[in-house]
Computed example of a mutant assay.
Amino acid sequence: MSAMTRPRPRVAAAAATVAAAALVLTGCSSSGSSSSGEGQVGFVTVKGTNLSKADAGKRGDAPDVSGETLEGNQVKLSDYRGKVVVLNVWGSWCGPCRAEAKNLQAVADEYKDKGVQFLGINTRDTDKTNAVRFEQEQGVSFPSIFDPAGTQLLKFPKGSLNPQSIPTTLVVDRDGKLAARAVGGTTQEALESIVQPVVAEQQQ
């Protein structure tokens, strides 16, 4: 009997290890691979980049992600309705996240007086201390929702401008609709190229 039951925990543990490794490998990526049926929802991938955008009038609603921030405050995306929101999905364990952090903060500083709010979703960090340390080391000042299990990411509908890897940065327009996406680590220039047009269209 014991010979029959012993392998099962080992098999389960091995399966869990493989699944966790797959999540990390597919999640933390600087590539821009995408298979979300972009044509169906009216958005296009910018040639030669990892950026996608949706024209006004063809944008889907962003889910009202919410939760407790790393600082212990409650926040939800709809709190910022009327502003352009840059939503960054990241983890302290992710190399591309570390590489892009200062770029995100630079754009946040540049656009903070132009009706733009940055909001992070910290995911797959089981220990909040690691995420807080990451923010301190990288000089990140905007709030981030602590979402270790990725439950907020599951709110994004498939076939939309949804997060497809970690990091992913989304631009939400003033009407709460998904306007643009950068998959993988982004540069300051690339991020501004999708933020600035959304800011400008609201000023026309």
Rank of each mutant, 00 (worst) to 15 (best):
T168F: 01
A131I: 04
N130Q: 13
T123L: 03
Y111T: 14
Q136E: 15
E192P: 09
D79C: 08
R133V: 11
S165G: 15
T151V: 13
E100S: 10
P96S: 09
F156P: 02
D79F: 04
F142S: 02
S144R: 03
A179P: 05
S78P: 11
D175I: 11
A131D: 05
L170M: 07
Q152M: 11
V140T: 13
W90N: 04
L191F: 03
E110P: 09
G115T: 02
V85H: 09
F156K: 01
L154S: 14
L154F: 10
K177Y: 12
D173G: 09
V84F: 07
T186P: 04
L87H: 05
V107Y: 06
R181C: 04
S78W: 07
V132N: 07
F118Q: 00
L104T: 06
F134A: 06
V195F: 06
G150S: 10
D127S: 12
L178K: 07
N122W: 00
G82D: 07
G115I: 02
G185W: 00
P143C: 07
F142D: 01
L104K: 06
S78V: 09
K128G: 11
K112F: 05
Q164G: 15
S160A: 14
V140H: 04
F146N: 08
N88F: 02
T151F: 12
A149Y: 13
R124F: 11
D125G: 09
N88D: 11
Q136H: 13
I166N: 00
G115L: 05
K177Q: 15
S193W: 10
V198L: 08
S165C: 14
L161A: 02
P163I: 02
L191R: 02
K158W: 11
G159K: 07
Q152D: 10
S193K: 10
R181F: 02
T186L: 04
Q105M: 05
